Amino acid sequence: MFLTLLNEGQSVLFARAARLMIEADDIAHERELAMLEAIGIETGLTELPDGGTFAEVVQEAADALTDPTQRNAFLIELAGVAVIDGDEHGAERALLQQLADQLGLGERVDEFLAFAHDARDLADRGRALVTTVEAD
């Protein structure tokens, strides 16, 4: 949704952060894997990079995300990764908080997560509407 606001290097960084977020709870749900695929499509990345370490991603994000709009977009999208499976795991929230703190947006984590929950719920409702076949 907002990944188009990021440049190519920031998109690669986001893909790395998303992969680490998905791995944070040691369970890769089907919806999380589908989201990784969608991230690749939206960012135009033909191959998603390995995550590396979260400490590396946090430092690189602080250096690469200098524009406030890009910082917000990065965190909103990463919050979406944290909630996509319906289970906002404590490890995922901790990673999001750590990154948000580094970017100077730590006080907005609840706001980003609330938006991500709303967006996930709306997408679920949309899928239900699209796949419902009415009987004559």
Results as ranks from 00 to 15, higher is better:
residue 37 E to L: 05
residue 8 E to K: 15
residue 42 E to S: 13
residue 86 G to W: 00
residue 42 E to W: 08
residue 96 L to I: 00
residue 41 I to L: 14
residue 101 D to V: 13
residue 52 G to A: 06
residue 101 D to T: 12
residue 21 M to D: 00
residue 65 L to K: 06
residue 33 L to I: 13
residue 70 Q to R: 02
residue 101 D to W: 13
residue 70 Q to T: 05
residue 104 G to V: 10
residue 97 Q to P: 14
residue 36 L to R: 02
residue 45 L to E: 06
residue 45 L to Q: 06
residue 1 M to F: 03
residue 108 R to S: 14
residue 33 L to Y: 06
residue 38 A to T: 12
residue 118 D to P: 05
residue 30 E to M: 09
residue 21 M to S: 07
residue 104 G to T: 10
residue 17 A to W: 01
residue 8 E to A: 15
residue 69 T to R: 15
residue 22 I to G: 11
residue 79 A to G: 00
residue 51 G to Q: 10
residue 82 A to E: 05
residue 116 A to T: 04
residue 123 A to N: 05
residue 132 T to A: 13
residue 35 M to R: 10
residue 103 L to C: 07
residue 62 A to L: 08
residue 76 I to K: 03
residue 88 E to G: 03
residue 91 A to M: 03
residue 87 D to T: 09
residue 95 L to P: 08
residue 121 D to M: 09
residue 37 E to R: 10
residue 124 D to N: 12
residue 11 S to I: 00
residue 32 E to S: 12
residue 21 M to Y: 02
residue 75 L to W: 04
residue 55 A to S: 05
residue 44 G to R: 10
residue 85 D to W: 09
residue 92 E to D: 06
residue 81 V to F: 08
residue 123 A to V: 12
residue 18 A to L: 07
residue 136 D to N: 09
residue 107 E to T: 15
residue 55 A to N: 02
residue 67 D to M: 08
residue 61 A to G: 13
residue 46 T to E: 12
residue 19 R to P: 06
residue 85 D to H: 06
residue 81 V to M: 15
residue 66 T to L: 14
residue 36 L to F: 01
residue 9 G to R: 08
residue 59 Q to G: 10
residue 55 A to C: 00
residue 101 D to A: 13
residue 76 I to R: 04
residue 67 D to V: 14
residue 77 E to K: 04
residue 70 Q to V: 00
residue 59 Q to W: 07
residue 92 E to F: 07
residue 75 L to N: 12
residue 53 T to W: 04
residue 58 V to N: 05
residue 11 S to F: 01
residue 45 L to Y: 03
residue 83 V to W: 08
residue 119 A to H: 04
residue 102 Q to Y: 07
residue 76 I to C: 02
residue 118 D to S: 11
residue 62 A to G: 10
residue 53 T to S: 07
residue 6 L to G: 11
residue 117 H to F: 02
residue 120 R to P: 11
residue 112 F to N: 01
residue 46 T to W: 13
residue 23 E to F: 01
residue 89 H to W: 02
residue 90 G to R: 10
residue 7 N to M: 10
residue 39 I to A: 04
residue 117 H to G: 00
residue 92 E to M: 03
residue 95 L to G: 04
residue 22 I to R: 11
residue 80 G to Y: 05
residue 58 V to H: 04
residue 30 E to I: 14
residue 125 R to G: 13
residue 132 T to I: 09
residue 88 E to S: 06
residue 87 D to W: 14
residue 132 T to R: 13
residue 111 E to D: 01
residue 8 E to Q: 15
residue 115 F to G: 00
residue 62 A to P: 04
residue 69 T to A: 15
residue 19 R to W: 01
